[in-house]
């Protein structure tokens, strides 16, 4: 008895330590990133976030660039605005495409598709969420980039007289639009399945009331179901957005990888996540270590952006699920 109660206590302590793991890991990552990125902030100042030139400098030059008491390779300048713009613009394109597609798909799945068919379709959409990002990248290279270059791009260019941003030239098909399209396909399953789960929680009675009042099925959805899940839906969208912000490999494969501000919809761009993946190798060759510090600050910036969006989204989904009426129904 004594032994087993001692073991029980030990076990409890072990589970407590394990449960603290995620908290500890998050804190360690944030603290390590903050400490490691301070030199970059000292070297570059606040122009780190507003500068448009990302240049690790000439590691073989005989002199060093010194700013703010910190040494870096000659001519090094770290401005991450192109990466921020690339991240935001690709993910916004993805959202603009994904939201209507995902929400309408979820609606038809819940309200129109027969249950037996839905049992086949839902797993397929969930499978889409599980496809590795490199396979999406491969699909982007094989299908989406040529499609943008030869079909969608030339077609959109006709609108260029109205919206100059759509006027070409289209160069390789690898760029902003392609990355946005691939990201859209990656977040559609996330938003679809979350929206579907939320719609299933909408009680039958108000919907039937709406139909009884003579509303068409879509008016019922617009005035009853969508307002019902509003917060949760917003959360689902931001959740998808968070995924798009942090996506690395697929974007790395189809974005064209240029650290420039996009000139038009087809320009090659780079996102923060894919810049980290692409530049870490060469940054390690900078013996002043300033490039690594700069990448750390870039990583920290990305982390802060994704954490803020994710926390906001989860809070909203949580509040959305906690609606008193929804609980009664469940």
């Amino acid at each position: 008895m004594k032994f087993s109660s001692a073991f029980s206590k030990l076990f409890k302590v072990a589970t407590g330590i394990a449960a603290g793991g995620p908290l500890l890991i998050v804190l360690v990552i944030i603290i390590a990133l903050v400490i490691d990125s301070i030199p970059a902030l000292r070297y570059q100042g606040w122009s780190f976030f507003t500068g448009t030139s990302w240049n690790m400098g000439n590691a073989y030059a005989s002199t060093l660039s010194i700013h703010g008491g910190e040494k870096a390779a000659f001519g090094a300048s770290f401005g991450i605005l192109p990466f921020i713009v690339g991240t935001l613009s690709t993910s916004l394109i993805a959202l603009v495409i994904a939201i209507p597609v995902a929400v309408l798909t979820a609606l038809i799945l819940v309200y129109k598709v027969p249950k037996s068919l839905g049992k086949v379709i839902s797993p397929m959409i969930e499978l889409l969420a599980g496809i590795p990002s490199v396979v999406y990248g491969l699909w982007g290279i094989l299908v989406v980039a040529p499609f943008v270059q030869h079909v969608l791009g030339p077609w959109l260019m006709h609108l260029g007289t109205i919206i100059p941003f759509l006027a070409g030239p289209i160069q390789t098909g690898y760029g902003l639009l392609t990355a946005g399209l691939v990201l859209a396909v990656m977040i559609i399953p996330i938003v679809t399945s979350t929206t579907r789960d939320l719609l299933m929680q909408v009680p039958q009675l108000p919907m039937e009331g709406a139909y009884a009042l003579g509303l068409t099925s879509f008016e019922g959805i617009r005035f009853i179901a969508l307002p019902w899940i509003r917060r949760g839906l917003f959360g689902a969208v931001v959740l998808g957005w968070g995924r798009a912000l942090g996506e690395t490999m697929a974007v790395l494969m189809v974005s064209g990888g240029a650290a420039n501000m996009p000139a038009n919809l087809y320009s090659a761009v780079t996102t923060m996540a894919s810049a980290i993946a692409a530049d870490l190798d060469s940054a390690m060759n900078d013996y002043t270590h300033m490039s690594v510090h700069a990448l750390t600050l870039l990583a920290l910036t990305l982390l802060v952006i994704t954490l803020v969006t994710n926390v906001a989204a989860r809070l909203l989904v949580y509040l959305g699920r906690r609606g008193p009426d929804v609980e009664v129904q469940a």
């Binding site: 995620p22 990133l33 942090g246 996540a273 993946a277 990583a299 954490l307 926390v311």
Partner: peptide
Amino acid sequence: VLRFATEVLSGVPSIIIGYFGYTM
């Protein structure tokens, strides 16, 4: 609190975990 930390960790982009793994 622990659940929140877990949710936060699941929102950390994988490249940042990789970057942290590399530098650390």
